[in-house]
Write a protein that binds this DNA or RNA. Structure first.
Lengths: 315, 315
DNA sequence: GCGGATCACTAAATCGAATAAGTGCAGTCT
DNA sequence: AGACTGCACTTATTCGATTTAGTGATCCGC
């Protein structure tokens, strides 16, 4: 029952040509001249036998496999933006005959092991887009987009009349690998406020438990009574602010408006329901796929991904 | 600057032996007799040059790479149990000189592509433990544990005096790939209740929006007034039940107790805070790693992983 | 002191694909 | 007619590891 893998040799025998010819046909080598009839025969034989190229052999010969690794420090808590990003990246890579695999547990030594074991075409980093041998700036517009999207979040607060805003971060998660992302977000928030000639944000750092959150928030509102709205790092953080506010009797959005980031699904079910920013990361994903493989980016593609405020009750 | 990869040949030259000898030494081939001095020389040379075996070459020769794929249908929403499971699986595989990579986007054709491209040692499925060529029942005690853990969840409700319980499922997620897991959980719940000579559970299926949830819950409590507690598929589902109950003015846990599954972190911050089941999945992960690679399972290892009720306010 | 076993290795084949370097043949140019 | 070019392929090498089948040297028994 276990029919062994079909190799190029099998295809060549079936088509009555040499193995090299099969390779030329199947890879559409433009430098080689193969007659249309032979091409057809080879292709048919390959299809009939169900030939699938062996990735290991290919990787050995070419020096690099057709695998792209996405490095994620910790298990992500499903924001829809992240999911869509991964989906799109994956789909586009698949179209380009590559495959996306995700690696948890970052670490520099890990990347070395990874490189040796799978010779990936590139290693991307969710947090910091990692350097690949092919594309120096394999960014795909991510950070650029991050700035734009942070602007959408902050601007919503300003446009709804808030003059002094805060930025909420979870301490534990920041330590666990979101440090860089958090720093970027805070930086962009500062810049947006500067551009709008608004005062800089105060930082609200949550703790490890619900009690910590309450204490932090209580202290925060007391220390900064002029702050009437907070933008959170993500929806989970925002939901924690909501919970703490509810426990403290702080009215949301009356006394304090709260806005999340990267709609995570659960926000809709909170009370008050969470206003957040929904990001169309699919375009990013597709673009990053091409950039990563060193392909030209379709200039007609919509470059600046859309981010819209999902306006619910909390802001 | 870009010093090319160190190969076995390089090591053999440095150690003054043949390439075959290097392979024998580095892989500790028991059938071969190599003198201690030579072994030492080879090892030193390899260490000095920083030799790392090429995974592609190895995979080509051996027919299978040292990569294990964990197939996850959709982006998971970080339960701590899942995270710990993945961490432990990963760590143990690393100890055994293998590597865990995660693949989103399941699908049978995908597995074929995957097999061809990376020749993984095994493909595991978060939902259903997938068959690998080596281990027929590469289960690692997962389903067995799932039964035990579901029992812990249900028993908590029964022990706190509830005579008729419900089981809450999200419709959308069930469709999106948790179908099998959900079916297993419901099945185990039924069995536990049967064993306890309690009535079978009624199913509460949530919808797509907060409004749907409210309607579903309102109908559920009206139809089944005797149900005083619900066990949820996971924490996210439980939090949605909590939100709907709060909106409907249904007292939790007074009128309806709610218990989650696989402590997801956010439950602590809800009001009322979510009672849930915390699972020690690390032992599973380690065990599964060994089973997957066809290694004997350490009999001294604690087999039945512990699951404890994290008792908070909702049940 | 000579056949055979054991030791400590080495040479070479192998995995499957990509590709550089040929090869034979038809047609073209001069 | 002979050299040359282009076409349609094939042969053979390569990637880096594992592994089988040797190969000389030493040791053992009788």
């Amino acid at each position: 029952m276990r029919s062994k893998r079909v190799t190029m040799k099998d295809v060549s025998v079936a088509a009555g040509v040499s193995q090299a010819t099969v390779s030329f046909v199947l890879n559409d080598k433009p430098t080689e001249t193969i007659s249309p009839e032979t091409r057809e025969r080879v292709r048919r034989a390959a299809a009939e036998l169900g030939y699938v190229p062996n990735g290991s052999a290919r990787a050995l010969r070419e020096g690099t496999s057709r695998i792209v690794i996405l490095n994620v420090a910790r298990l992500p808590h499903g924001g829809t933006g992240l999911a869509a990003f991964i989906d799109a990246l994956d789909a586009e890579l698949e179209r380009l005959d590559h495959m996306l695999l995700v690696r948890y547990r970052a670490g520099s030594d890990d990347i070395e092991r990874l490189t040796a074991m799978v010779s990936p075409r590139a290693v991307l980093d969710l947090d910091r887009i990692y350097d690949s041998p092919d594309a120096e700036q394999a960014d795909g517009g991510w950070t650029e987009g991050l700035a734009a999207h942070t602007a959408v979040q902050i601007r919503h607060l300003v446009e709804t009349g808030h003059e002094q805003v805060g930025f909420a971060l979870p301490r534990s998660r920041v330590a666990a690998g979101l440090a860089r992302l958090a720093a970027l977000r805070v930086g962009y928030a500062r810049r947006v406020l500067e551009d709008l000639r608004m005062p800089q944000p105060h930082t609200l750092t949550l703790g490890a438990t619900a009690d910590d959150d309450r204490r932090s928030l209580a202290e925060f509102v007391e220390r900064h009574p002029q702050v009437t709205a907070v933008a959170a790092l993500d929806d989970e953080t925002a939901l924690r602010v909501l919970a703490a506010a509810s426990a403290l009797g702080i009215e949301v959005p009356g006394r304090l408006a709260v806005i999340g980031f990267d709609d995570a699904g659960l926000g809709e079910f909170a009370t008050p329901s969470l206003t957040t920013v929904r990001i169309d990361t699919a375009a990013f994903g597709r673009r990053l796929a091409r950039v990563t493989l060193g392909l030209p980016v379709d200039p007609a593609a919509p470059t600046p991904a859309a981010a819209v405020v999902v306006r619910r009750d909390s802001a």
